[in-house]
Design a protein around this nucleic acid. Structure first.
Lengths: 358, 358
DNA sequence: GTTGCTTCCGAAAGCGGTTTCGGGATACGA
DNA sequence: TCGTATCCCGAAACCGCTTTCGGAAGCAAC
């Protein structure tokens, strides 16, 4: 669309007459190049001139056309967040908060944040590919990496700047921001063990997600250091939904020797587990314990309020943005690897193990 | 598509050997202009040539540089969603689902979706202004309009394509997609009245939000048609958070003649109301009724599960995207005004009024 | 063998910026 | 007075693609 059609050159009010570099230059009696350099902080422009140009630009409301600028400089001044297509996760608050933090970081520099969302799993590589060849963005942020992630391989092969929220199995040479999932689940197990639990159910997620793998490892390591054997019949792999969590918990509850505690890889699943527990006539927090992961706000309002492990999402978005920016500026990605700890947020769904003799 | 074909030459790492229109043309023995027109479906190119060009483009992995294309055509092939800055609402699932739908609609056309997030309230007009003058986007979608919304005025004055999720007080001449808020709350009141309630508390939002205004109107009209007088002492205006909802409900509960039911303009508030009710030792669904609005999934897991009114968010995002695209293509915005109905989603937080004589 | 159409493609002028390069002023030392 | 170094600014190429315009072929018709 042309600017004429966009702003309507016709009828009476002529809104928003676009002020371009050329018009600005002319009105100043200078050249485009001079004005451009003045605005971009080149040192070979007289201080007075710079001031004069700045003032005029402000008054006339000059905004450089981003497309032109990007074409000329070759830098897109935008990064893409590719939405994990699995399970329509954009709907998860998880993603929303991350976006918020990202945007904050980018906005400080005036960059754009665009979200990209692919339809199928293998389509995702295409999406990435299109992103990096189209010149639309100068960086990409990934989330929920797989254990072996083709998108990461693609990005690395192309030497395209990117950061990932989480990490894949081999993560030495790229930038990531992750929670120490193994530690988190290790300590969660420890917490439950301290409450007296020995039969701890685990509601996991498909293991091609690396975080699922890590958390399972943490679960096992926690068990191990407590001297408890790993019992495969206590672990369920479920989708990241409440319904799946509910089904998985129900299955575990129907077993002859059901667990006295449930550890879930996501709050959403844990919500379902809570439901299963209630359906069974049990009360979470006394009869059984359930612990989630994510620290969702709404966990405050479940029945009972969900004990969970929280990760600072908005802040992680900000940090991811800062990292990506630094890498685009030339930093070595390997120098940008951040490992944070999750915090155990005790609400009311956990408690000492229930025994017959009480 | 393989890495090989994507990035051209082989051996070692050859990062991003970009195939440009020029290189493509040269390898075909044609001119840039010919190739460009062939790819863009111009009719003055021989059918065979078109085929040949298409094939080569695919093989060599040619992707047009979006910035160049945008500069040349003047159309940005991107639209912006401006995040309501109030209350950091991006974190709300609300926004996330809308984004999802929007992205789906735009992706069908290969357009970008970028999110823009301003820091302060008055900064928002600046954000809009920057958006429409920078040439980055060819359309804008707004949400949560104010009753009198400067952003809308700005957009209209600039004749810039936009759609809004919701509508302001005067909404004849632009495109919007809205739920019939008045109707929704009218029927919600009716529902409560049918359950025997006469003292219905209303937890509203600041009235500069038009939806807040509409819903209050609906509340009043429902009361009126039930022959119940409007009692100002039963309405509270609160922020759109759980804490605010909780405080508001607590205030109402502390009154000498507390309401027997609560109608909230958002689920998040209703979560808080539920907490206040519990804190008071009452049980929602029998002692008092509480009804939310939004249809959040997590409402299934509150204590008790929240009765609410749901609006189809993902779908509305899609429709908003389609509308915006149509308008950018030249449609008259006034022909794109969609009014949907909310559905009452009865879960367990409502019930017949409690009486002493039962 | 002109004339007159089509059909198909090349030439070239942008789109609105950025950036390198060179040179005219001015200042300064000799 | 004549370099010559320093400061500023203009000229021009370029980023990669789109689009208008004109014209070379090819073919039909007269």
């Amino acid at each position: 669309m042309s600017l004429e059609s966009a702003f309507g050159n016709l009828s009476g009010y002529a809104p928003l007459k676009r002020v371009t570099l050329k018009s600005l230059a002319k009105s100043l009696g200078l050249t485009e190049s001079t004005v451009s350099r003045a605005l971009n902080g080149y040192s070979d422009i007289n201080e007075n001139t710079v001031e004069r140009v700045r003032k005029a630009a402000l008054e006339l409301g000059y905004k450089p056309n981003q497309n032109a600028r990007r074409l000329a400089t070759g830098i897109a001044e935008a990064v893409a967040f590719v939405i994990p297509q699995n399970h329509s996760s954009l709907a998860e608050p998880f993603v929303a908060q991350l976006l918020q933090g990202l945007d904050e970081s980018l906005a400080r520099r005036g960059w754009d944040l665009l979200v990209s969302h692919s339809l199928s799993a293998e389509d995702e590589s295409n999406t990435i590919h299109r992103l990096i060849t189209s010149g639309r963005v100068s960086g990409v942020v990934l989330s929920r990496p797989f254990r072996h992630d083709a998108r990461i391989d693609l990005l690395q092969a192309a030497k395209f700047p990117f950061v990932v929220h989480g990490r894949s199995a081999s993560c030495d040479s790229y930038a990531w921001y992750d929670i120490d999932n193994e530690l988190a689940f290790d300590t969660a197990v420890k917490h439950l063990v301290d409450l007296g639990h020995r039969r701890i159910g685990f509601i996991g997620a498909p293991l091609y997600f690396n975080f699922a793998h890590q958390r399972l490892q943490g679960y096992r390591s926690g068990l191990k250091s407590a001297g408890i054997g790993y019992d495969e019949s206590l672990v369920q792999i479920a989708e990241l939904t409440d319904d799946a969590g509910e089904r998985a918990a129900a299955d575990l509850l129907n077993t002859p020797k059901p667990p006295t505690a449930f550890l879930c890889v996501s709050d959403t699943q844990a919500f379902g587990v809570l439901a299963a527990v209630r359906a069974r006539g049990l009360v979470a927090g006394s009869d059984v314990s359930v612990i989630g992961y994510d620290g969702l706000k709404t966990g405050r309002h479940t029945n009972p309020p969900l004990t969970t492990m929280s990760q600072p999402l908005t802040q992680s978005g900000r940090e991811l943005g800062d990292m990506l920016l630094a890498i685009i500026d030339g930093d070595d990605p390997a120098n940008h690897q951040i490992l944070k700890r999750a915090k155990l947020l005790v609400r009311n769904s956990d408690g000492p193990v229930w025994t017959h003799h009480q």
